[in-house]
């Protein structure tokens, strides 16, 4: 029965992911229902109210303009909460990482597992929005079918950024700065609610630096099946962010946990 080799890298990452999945699905209803509720409320609000004032945006009915952004924005929010509050609590209050580091896992495994989990949650949240808009027939299904994968990468990207931030903070209250100062404004300036090309050019340049912009642009391209070469830049942005911030997060947590 005794195996004398520790589990492989992949199974270690999977075991960390599995731990998060077990914790999340333990409260299946309270965790799994709201992601479907949120888009319902949004659609109702727009259908009944806002949509009456704004009929078209960027040449399409407003509701159709909104959907691509609404699919990836929840992935950003959920990954952000998971890897700020969630991570900080596991690190400092529950000491869950302390226990895990007593088993055959390294800091590297913990962080990569965390990123995969946040990506999975991002994909689930994107999927939830997609199912709601499909049920209401707001958008045609065929062009949207793969968009939850962009939710995965959006989640993973925001996880790495949030983890890097969380690795520096000393109290949980510092997270408020990150959320109100960085994440919330991003929702408004990433081309989710209005197109960026109407912004003054200086602000537009700044907006190009925001991570969510690139996720939204990819989903929008998928939705219209209109792919252009500059989309590669958006893909590159996401891949590089995950790699660079992921690397920093691992280094920072190593320093913080193994002194």
């Amino acid at each position: 029965m005794r195996n004398n080799k520790p589990p492989s890298f992949a199974s270690r990452i999977y075991s960390v992911w599995y731990r998060h999945m077990r914790v999340y699905t333990r409260h299946l209803f309270s965790n799994g229902f709201p992601p479907f509720m949120e888009p319902l409320i949004l659609l109702a609000g727009i259908g009944l109210g806002l949509g009456k004032y704004i009929e078209r945006m960027d040449g399409v009915p407003y509701i159709q303009f909104l959907v691509p952004g609404l699919i990836v924005a929840p992935a950003m929010f959920t990954a952000t909460f998971e890897c700020t509050f969630g991570t900080f609590i596991r690190l400092e209050f529950d000491k869950a990482y302390d226990g895990m580091l007593g088993s055959p896992l390294t800091v590297n495994n913990l962080i990569i597992g965390e990123i995969f989990w946040a990506g999975t949650k991002g994909m689930f949240f994107s999927f939830a929005v997609l199912s709601v808009v499909l049920v209401f027939g707001v958008v045609p299904p065929h062009s949207y079918i793969f968009t939850p994968f962009i939710g995965f990468f959006t989640g993973a990207m925001f996880a790495t950024i949030a983890l890097t931030f969380t690795s520096f903070i000393k109290t949980i209250n510092h997270i408020n700065f990150y959320i109100t100062g960085f994440i919330s404004p991003m929702f408004f300036f990433s081309g989710v609610i209005f197109p960026l090309n109407t912004l003054p050019s200086s602000i537009r340049l700044f907006a190009e630096l925001l991570p969510l912009v690139h996720s939204v642009r990819i989903v929008r391209a998928m939705a219209t099946s209109h792919f252009e070469i500059h989309l590669l830049g958006d893909v590159l942005y996401i891949v590089l962010s995950i790699t660079i911030f992921g690397f920093f997060a691992i280094q920072r947590f190593k320093k913080r946990m193994i002194d």
Binding site: P7, S11, Y14, S15, Y18, R22, L105
Partner: peptide
Amino acid sequence: QNLEVYSKFYG
């Protein structure tokens, strides 16, 4: 569940 999760850590 606590134990089950750790059994996974140990493969």
